[in-house]
Design a protein around this nucleic acid. Sequence first.
DNA 1: GTTGTATGATGAAGCGGTTCATCAATGCGG
DNA 2: CCGCATTGATGAACCGCTTCATCATACAAC
Lengths: 370, 370
Amino acid sequence: MKRFIIRSSNHNDMAVTIRDVAKLAGTSVTAVSATLNGSTGGTIRVGQATRERIYEAAAQLGYVSNPIAKSLATGKTKVLGLMLPYANAFVDQNPFCNQVMSGIMREVVHQHYNLMLYTATSGIQLDRAAMLVDSRIEGLLLVMPPEDSAIFLKCKKRGIPYVSILDTPTVGSWTVNSDDYTGGRIAAEHLITLGHRRIAHLVGSPGVVTSVPRERGFRDALKEAGIEVVEDLIVQSGFDWRLGLESTRLLLERSARTRPTAIFAANDLCAEGAIRAIRSAGMSVPDDIAVVGYDDTWYATLTQPPLTTVHMPIEEMGEMAARMLIARLEGQNGIDPQPVLPVSLTIRHSCGADASHFVGGTMSSHVSSQ
Amino acid sequence: MKRFIIRSSNHNDMAVTIRDVAKLAGTSVTAVSATLNGSTGGTIRVGQATRERIYEAAAQLGYVSNPIAKSLATGKTKVLGLMLPYANAFVDQNPFCNQVMSGIMREVVHQHYNLMLYTATSGIQLDRAAMLVDSRIEGLLLVMPPEDSAIFLKCKKRGIPYVSILDTPTVGSWTVNSDDYTGGRIAAEHLITLGHRRIAHLVGSPGVVTSVPRERGFRDALKEAGIEVVEDLIVQSGFDWRLGLESTRLLLERSARTRPTAIFAANDLCAEGAIRAIRSAGMSVPDDIAVVGYDDTWYATLTQPPLTTVHMPIEEMGEMAARMLIARLEGQNGIDPQPVLPVSLTIRHSCGADASHFVGGTMSSHVSSQ
DNA sequence: GTTGTATGATGAAGCGGTTCATCAATGCGG
DNA sequence: CCGCATTGATGAACCGCTTCATCATACAAC
C-alpha cells in the first residue's frame, strides 16, 4: 500500500512551508517565492493584490524561509568559513585573532552572511580540519595560513574561493596584509628620532610572513639614518612574552657599551617580555631602554609603562577580507585582490616620547597617542 | 517545448552526485546512499560485491556528499550555533570567551559537528543578532546571555534547544556553571589562612550572574572564621581593569587602620587594576596588600606578581556545554542539565603564600602552583 | 510442492525552495 | 476585428540525498 500522504498539515513540529502560505493566500508557490524574495525580475510577475494576500498569509502563519532548502535550490549558502591558525595557544592567548574575528563578524553580519568557524584544535592538524570544510560554505577566510597547506589545494579542487589574512601574496592569490615594511620603518624611525643608535630588533617567529618585511623596513630606516646595522642586535625571538623575555635577557648580557638602548619587539606580547627582562635586570623602561611593540592590541595599554607600538588595523583587515570575499562571490569586479593596509605609530610611554612632538613626524598616515 | 533534460552529466563545475556514483557502479542511488552512510540498518541491504563496486566508483569520481541536500532530507544539519555576548569589548578583550570557544570547538570537532558563529557586534543588539539564527542550526550555545533576552523565546518558538554557559539555572533550563560559591569561599579562606582579617571584595558587574554566589561564598567564609563582614569593604566593581583600579583606589583612601590588607577581585583583569592601584599608591603586592583574582585565564601569569587566582575550568565548561547540547540533540537521556563544575585555587605570588603549604589546605578539589 | 524468511536491491516520493516554460487575460493601435 | 505586446499567474522539473514500500531471489523447513 502506498503511503497516504496529503501533506499532513501539522506534523506538530513541522515548520510552515511556502506551500502552506500559498494555500492560505489562494495562490501558487511560485508567486509566494517571488514575492517574498522581492521578485527577481524574471518572467514571474505578481500583482499588487496577490502580493498583499501573500504577505498577510505569511505573517499570519509566521512563515520563515528555510535557508537549507533555499541553498539546495540556488546553490548559494550565504555562509563563509573562517579558519583560524593551527597553534591553539596562539588563538587563545593572542588578542590578534579576536580582533580579526570582530572585524570579520562586523562585515559578515552587515552583508547578511553567516560565519562557520573552523579551527585546528589541539590534536587536529590544520589539514585534517580542512577536511571538514564542505559545500556548506561559499568561501573561506584564512588567518595566517601556513604555506603550502593542503587546504589551498582542497579549496581549489572544490572551487571554493578564499582570501587569506597575513599571507604572502602570490600571483592570483587574494590576500589582505598590512604594510609591514613601513611598520618596521616607523618603529625604527621613531627610536632614531629620539636619539637612539644601538637599536635591537626581536624578530617574530620564523615562518610567519610578516617578520621579513618588518625587519627589512627596520634595517632600511637605520641605513638611511646612517646607522650601522649590527647583526647581533637583530635576533630571532617570537610572539610569546616568554620568548621576548628570553631574547632580551641575552641582549642585556652584553657590555654596557654594546648593549642596545632601544628594542623593537616582534609584537606587544613580546614587548611585554622585553620590559620584564629589562626591569628584572634593574633597569627602567623607557629611561634606560626604550621599547616599541607591534600590533597595538588592547594588551598594549596594559603593559607598564603603556606601550608605544605600531598600530595594525586588525579589525579593518578582517573586515576587508570579508568584504573582498563577498564581493568576489557576488561577481563584482574591480576589487584589489591584494590590499595592503596602512599602519601607524601609537605613541604611549615606553619610549619616553611626548606624543605631541610626533604628530606628523613619522611616515605613518596616522599617529595617535593615548 | 519542454526542456530537454538528461541530467547533463557535466555542467562543468557541477559536483559529482550520488547518481553519478550509482550509474558508474551500475546500481541504485538507494544502495549508494546506504553504503556510504554505513547502512542505517533499515530495510535496505547491500551485498558485499555491490558495496565494493560502490566504494570504487565513489573513489574514482572523487565523490563527496553534499551536506546541504543531506540536511534537507534528514532535517539534521550537524551544526551548532554559538552566540557570544553582546558587549563587543568583552569578547575582544577578555580571554574568557576565547577559552570557552576553544573548549566548544574541541568537542564540536570531536563529535563531527560544525559551529556557526553569531555575535552581537557593535551596533547590532543581541536580539537583532538572534534574528539571524535560523534552521541551519540544530542547537544553540549561549555565553553569558542577558536575562529575559528575546533569544530565548525565539529558540523556544523554533524548537531549537539551547545550553547556556554562565547563566542562572531555572526550572527546565540547561546551563553550565562553575561553582562560584565555592570559588568565593576558597579565595577568602586562603586569605584568612594567611592571617588577613580586613579583606575587601571587588564585586563583578551587576547583572552578571556569577557575582552573587561568589560574594555569598566570600561572606560565609568570613563569618565561619569569626571575622566581621565590613560592608564598606565589599564594593561594586567590574570585569575591566580600569574598574578594578578605580575601586581599589577608593579603598586605599581609607585610613591605614581600616584599609584592607587583602583584596579579592572580580576577575583577573580586575585584579590587574587592583595591583596597579596598590603600586601607584606606593605599596607592594603582596607585602602590603594581597590580591586574589578569579578565572585563571592566561592573563593571570602576566600580572606582576603573577596572580593567585581562583581557577575556573573555562575550556571544560565550553566542552561540557557542547557535549550536553549534542547529547540532547541525539536523544540521549540521563544527562545532568545543570552541571556545576568544580573550581580550585591556583597559587602564584600575589598573596605571598608558599604553594607547597597549601596543597590540600583548601576546599578545592585541586590546588596547583606555578 | 508449498510456505516462510532472510537477503539483496530498487523506484519513487519526499525535504522546501527556485525558476523555466507556458498560458490567460488585458489593453492598444490600426 | 485582428495581431501583438504586456502583465499576472501557475504547474512542474529540479537541487542532491534519504528512506519507505515493494519486489525478486534463494534457501530452509515442513
